[in-house]
Amino acid sequence: MDLISEVIRTVRVGTAGGRLIGQSGPSGIRFPAFSGTGFHIVLRGTCWLITEDQPPAALAPGDVVLTSSGAEHGMHRVPCSFADLPPAVLGPTPPPPGPYDFEFLCGGYSLDHGRAPQYLRTLPDLIVVSPDYDSHPEMRALIDLLGTEAGQTRMGSGATLAALLDLILIRVLRLWHDQQDTAGWPTADDPAIAAALRAIHTQPHRPWTIQRLSEQAGMPRTAFTRRFTTVVGQPPMRYLTGWRLSHGARLLRETKAPMSTIARQVGYSSEFAFSTAFRREYGVPPGRFRHTPSKISETTPEHADNR
């Protein structure tokens, strides 16, 4: 079972956004924590990634910073204390022509109602990847396209932006995964667990129990529960609930199906049961979630020029 693909399907529930940011001056910039996942790509100049509990990390052009589950962080042209960074300044327009001390692209999915997928929450809060662009020329092409589309309002820009974010996130996660040992990322290479995940993903409407899932895996219940929790990062029934609700969230955003139909498709016996579980997970009833998508464009800074 391809868990990276499942990550992408889950974050698509959020609103995609992208911005070019130019930064100059002595103050730096601080990004608050948010519900979702995103990344920065350094385009020009050098800077430092600043966090509250880790030493500053030097960044060079081409480096990618993945905020796997929306942790707060900052960037500055020199090492500094996180407490000294001012909050990001909002701006309604693209940054004016430079030069800047450094420039970077921001992209991500805001999940105002819900959290980043469990897989991303098992990763370090902030991950720095330095792609080999000679070996991965497609990465450079995607970044160039994202730079062109970010902040645009032309026809089709929203769909193009979301597709580019998907592709860049996939490649960043692959690159990071390739640099780690397998203990650092929850995989489903285990055939038994892959079989159970496939059953959950393709048939969320079925009345699954631990017993039925362990039969799909061909394992005793206790051994299955222990192995599933180790591989995936949470117990089977908790994972099942999360998958059903995230699948329901996608159906709410992507279809006009009645709530009762969606409830049945994701394994709930009634609209009321689905609504109760959904509100517990996302903090809002499904009807409001369907009609009030998050607005990442209103909360993402476009430039901060403190020269």
Score class of each variant (00 low, 15 high):
1 M>L: 11
2 D>S: 15
6 E>G: 08
8 I>H: 03
8 I>A: 10
13 V>Q: 12
15 T>Y: 07
15 T>S: 15
15 T>R: 13
16 A>K: 05
16 A>V: 12
21 I>S: 00
22 G>L: 09
25 G>L: 07
28 G>H: 00
29 I>Y: 01
31 F>T: 01
33 A>C: 09
35 S>E: 14
39 F>C: 03
42 V>E: 02
49 L>Y: 04
52 E>M: 04
56 P>N: 04
58 A>V: 14
61 P>Y: 01
62 G>E: 03
62 G>F: 01
65 V>K: 01
66 L>Y: 01
69 S>N: 14
73 H>R: 12
73 H>A: 13
80 C>L: 10
80 C>R: 07
81 S>N: 12
83 A>S: 14
84 D>C: 10
85 L>F: 13
86 P>C: 04
87 P>H: 10
89 V>F: 06
89 V>R: 09
91 G>M: 07
94 P>H: 06
95 P>A: 06
95 P>Q: 04
96 P>M: 09
98 G>Q: 06
98 G>Y: 06
101 D>V: 05
102 F>S: 00
102 F>R: 00
107 G>I: 03
108 G>F: 03
111 L>F: 08
119 Y>F: 08
120 L>Y: 02
123 L>Y: 00
127 I>W: 00
129 V>Y: 00
134 D>H: 11
138 E>F: 12
140 R>N: 07
142 L>T: 03
142 L>H: 05
148 T>Y: 05
151 G>A: 09
154 R>K: 11
154 R>D: 04
155 M>P: 05
160 T>M: 15
161 L>W: 02
162 A>P: 02
168 I>K: 04
170 I>Q: 13
173 L>W: 00
175 L>A: 13
179 Q>I: 02
182 T>L: 15
183 A>W: 07
184 G>M: 11
184 G>N: 08
187 T>L: 13
188 A>G: 07
188 A>H: 07
195 A>N: 15
195 A>E: 07
196 A>C: 10
197 L>R: 09
199 A>E: 10
200 I>L: 09
202 T>N: 11
202 T>P: 01
202 T>L: 12
204 P>E: 09
208 W>D: 11
210 I>R: 13
210 I>V: 11
218 G>L: 07
222 T>G: 02
223 A>G: 08
224 F>G: 02
225 T>H: 06
227 R>V: 05
227 R>T: 10
228 F>H: 03
229 T>S: 14
235 P>F: 03
238 R>D: 09
238 R>S: 09
238 R>Y: 06
242 G>I: 06
243 W>L: 14
243 W>N: 02
244 R>C: 12
244 R>W: 14
249 A>M: 09
251 L>Q: 14
252 L>M: 14
252 L>K: 03
255 T>M: 10
255 T>H: 13
259 M>A: 06
260 S>A: 15
264 R>C: 06
266 V>R: 00
267 G>Y: 00
268 Y>E: 04
273 A>K: 10
276 T>L: 15
279 R>H: 15
280 R>W: 15
281 E>F: 14
281 E>V: 04
287 G>K: 08
288 R>W: 15
289 F>W: 07
290 R>F: 14
291 H>G: 05
292 T>E: 10
303 H>D: 02
303 H>S: 08
305 D>R: 15
305 D>F: 13
305 D>C: 10
306 N>P: 00
